[in-house]
């Protein structure tokens, strides 16, 4: 039986420094580049199977598709970093696009887009208020508003498709800048802005703080409620922006133009490496994730796979991405010591 021998307390501590720097900084970098590697390998493979893939028309197709998802995903990334979620993407896109289509004959292109963004902000505000002040869990509140917004969209259009005839609008939203589709350029700008907002402002810090530990964030005196509402508003605007470009591309707007879009958006964010538990978010990952899904969908199309398979595949990839993320996170999880 051990008697009293006093050992050196200091000597046996595991040094957390190196191990955690590895975990905090190096690992995410590798896993992000891993994603880019997958994207490149996938593109090459698809290109080898179907050389049409590298045709300039097809590539711009992929970039368009990635931009719509990516724009909405920027807002979603901030929401998820805050431990929130918005399932009403499809509803916000429908309402704001219909607003654009309705307003265009009467106003300038700029005012139409402005109107869309304003509507996005208002619908985001509704979500934010419901979640923050009525205290409804976000996924379920926004599931409710998804149907609410869709209902509004259908009522507005009477269930019909509204054509979008303005040449200027179409030229602006489907044109290109130095060969790159305009929406993709806008996506890059929005992604950079979102990054700065999330990582370099007090607002972003508050979002990450309540995403990490909401109770601790409000006890630290952070303006949690305000930031929560605002991040929904920001997300609403980003959805509406995606909608404005989608309407331009489709040359029309209708109630079910973005049915099920929330899945694609969440999948892009999560596959990009933003964990659902909140506290962090990677915008680069989100853009890569959006590209990945766009390439995948395009490949399925080129290979002539039934479009129904896309439902199955998106869902399966989403589950796989989160399951892998959950394993990784739990391996690195800090457990309560003591």
């Amino acid at each position: 039986m051990q008697a009293e021998d006093v050992k050196n307390r200091e000597g046996t501590h595991v040094d957390p420094g190196n191990a955690s720097r590895w975990r905090d900084q190096v690992l995410p970098l590798i896993s992000r580049q891993y994603l880019i590697a997958i994207l490149i390998v996938l593109s090459i493979a698809v290109g080898a199977a179907k050389p049409v893939f590298w045709g300039s028309g097809n590539i711009s197709n992929v970039l368009f598709q990635a931009s719509f998802v990516g724009l909405a995903a920027c807002g979603m990334t901030l929401l998820i970093a805050g431990g929130l979620l918005d399932l009403s993407v499809g509803g916000v896109i429908a309402v704001s696009s219909i607003a654009v289509a309705t307003a265009l004959p009467y106003g300038t292109v700029g005012s139409a887009i402005g109107l869309a963004l304003l509507i996005g902000a208002v619908l985001g505000l509704v979500n934010g208020l419901l979640v923050t002040f009525v205290r409804i869990p976000p996924f379920i509140a926004t599931l409710g508003t998804l149907y609410l917004f869709l209902g509004l969209a259908f009522i507005w259009t009477g269930g019909k498709v509204i054509g979008l005839s303005s040449k200027n609008y179409r030229a602006l939203t489907t044109g290109d800048i130095l060969g790159v589709p305009t929406p993709f350029v806008v996506l890059v700008i929005v992604a950079v802005l979102s990054y700065l907002l999330l990582w370099r402002t007090y607002f972003g810090r508050t979002v990450r703080a309540f995403g990490s530990n909401e109770r601790a964030a409000s006890l630290a005196g952070l303006p949690v409620k305000r930031a929560k509402v605002l991040v929904f508003v920001f997300a609403g605007i980003s959805f509406a922006l995606a909608g404005a470009f989608m309407a331009g591309r489709l040359a029309s707007a209708e109630g079910n133009m973005a049915m099920g879009f929330e899945m694609d958006v969440i999948a892009a964010v999560v596959v990009g490496g933003t964990a659902l538990r909140g506290g962090r978010g990677t915008l680069l990952g989100t853009v890569v994730g959006a590209l990945l899904f766009a390439v995948l969908a395009n490949a399925l199309n080129l290979l002539g796979v039934a479009s129904y398979w896309q439902y199955v595949l998106t869902g399966a990839v989403l589950i796989a991405a989160i399951a892998v993320g959950a394993r990784r996170a739990s391996a690195a999880e800090v457990r309560g010591a003591g």
Partner: peptide, 27 residues
Amino acid sequence: LVVTQLRVPGFIATLATMSVFRGAVLL
């Protein structure tokens, strides 16, 4: 199984399977 074994939160797991099952029934 997805929720308990793969540790995917219920709402997102079933959001994904909603899509998977719908694809399956359409197929």
